[in-house]
Design a protein around this nucleic acid. Structure first.
Lengths: 252, 252
DNA sequence: CGCTCGGTTGAAGGAGGTCAACTCCGGTGG
DNA sequence: CCACCGGAGTTGACCTCCTTCAACCGAGCG
């Protein structure tokens, strides 16, 4: 609710982008990198709970999450909230806003975050000068849809246990893929039970009870905002989840 | 299951594309139109129930639904099916397939349909030669995600009555927007109760009972595969649905 | 004529929602 | 220093919305 999102005084140069060093993203030419650098107008930081985007409002910007986690969501009149998907470092944000007037969803930070900002009205300029980057933007849009598809399958067809298992496995995989896994096998997990409930279409109470059941069965553990999968195979089977092999993802 | 999708002997020339005449789509330059015409390699027709895409398989093609309806879906091991979204004339299909190996979802025809086919491996060529068209492809990807978002909100947060109301209103709006509304106020509705159930994450039986309740309240009517909204305002209120104003959509 | 498919309805049971209470923190201010 | 507070997690009791099972109907069709 508060609005502590503020510009930083110094920009992280794309040339030294910490995300690219993870090796989790597709390679890029020096020229492309230079263009992205020029495309980037500012960099902002925000604290947990800050709104990067408000439902119905326009920012005129596109974003890349440089560090930190967030989520896209929509509110209903009765106060209930649906989390559409979680956003991890490297995720591109704001394409939906270009479809009409105002963003159809809000974006809230799950952790302190650092965000690269791009002027939305120059997206077509990007298309013109760097067709390959435009292709990448399309890729990112399709990829996010894939994740939402996955969530919809969960919420529509799976039992509470399966949904929770799916969420844990999916988040773990995504975090792992961008190099967030520690030596002890844990990844950051800044998602509380209310977030999980809102993402899975479950009540808070039932989410809690389901989590306790999985923990009781020794399938996973969450400690100090970090997630460990103790029996990944069991979780995969429970969730009926098979991760399909993906190309190296682009980063704008 | 059967595979009666077959190439047509004669292509519909893009210059005389029946969809563009509806006025539902954004304008386009002659040059762009010519490029699209060249991009299009063939045209196929299929019957109700045909699979345009199979889960996990690769076609190497992108599609535009020229006429007819379809839906994207995913199956789970236990045989349950989640319909991700419905596809209407003008919708672009197949971007997700580009993300990895094989399509992450199936596409099945709801009606006899006519489909324009494009070679997927030349999508980047399109980006290079016509940046504005590339921008349009991104737009279409983001737009489809918006629809999936909408479905996810329904399935995750709304009651059975609200979900059904939402589906009816949403499909009506989409059909209307591409000029499918007749003078009597009805639009085509080739969606049966099993489809609705699979899209909404409800059982067939409960979908039926919910529909009967709405019909009993005089909110809508479905006759001979056509849908009429008798009390659109009541349905909108019930579904907590506010359609946001959209730009004129592109057509590839 | 019989078969299948889509729709309809009733009855019974269960997964998950709601309500309520309690704990365990980490502030924060007297 | 400690009392107070709010947020997150936990647990039990009860209830309801939705699922499941089962049966039946009508239309289209080989």
């Amino acid at each position: 609710m508060k609005m502590t999102i503020v510009p930083t005084t110094e920009l992280t140069p794309c040339l030294r982008c910490p995300l690219r060093r993870t090796g989790a993203f597709a390679g890029i030419t020096a020229e492309q990198l230079a263009f992205i650098q020029g495309f980037k107008t500012r960099e902002v930081v925000g604290a947990t709970g800050d709104l990067l985007m408000r439902e119905g409002e326009t920012t005129g910007e596109l974003y890349t999450l440089l560090s930190g986690w967030a989520f896209r969501f929509r509110m209903l009149r009765d106060g209930s909230r649906q989390i559409l998907n979680f956003l991890l470092p490297g995720d591109f944000i704001g394409l939906q806003e270009q479809l009409g007037v105002g963003s159809p969803h809000g974006v809230e930070l799950l952790t302190p975050a650092r965000i690269c900002c791009f002027p939305a009205d120059q997206l077509w300029e990007l298309s013109r000068v760097h067709p390959d980057l435009s292709y990448d933007v399309t890729w990112l849009a399709a990829h996010e849809e894939l994740i939402v598809d996955e969530n919809l399958v969960s919420v529509g067809q799976r039992s509470a246990q399966q949904r929770v298992a799916m969420l844990l496995v999916h988040i773990f995989k995504r975090a792992e893929s961008i190099g967030l896994k520690r030596a002890d096998g844990s990844v950051p997990f800044p998602i509380n039970q209310q977030h999980m409930a809102d993402a899975l279409g479950l009540s808070l109470v039932h989410t809690n009870k389901t989590l306790r059941k999985l923990v009781g069965a020794g399938l996973h553990a969450i400690r100090e905002d970090r997630l460990q999968l103790l029996k990944p195979d069991s979780l995969n089977r429970l969730a009926d989840y098979f991760a399909l092999p993906m190309r190296l993802r682009p980063l704008i």
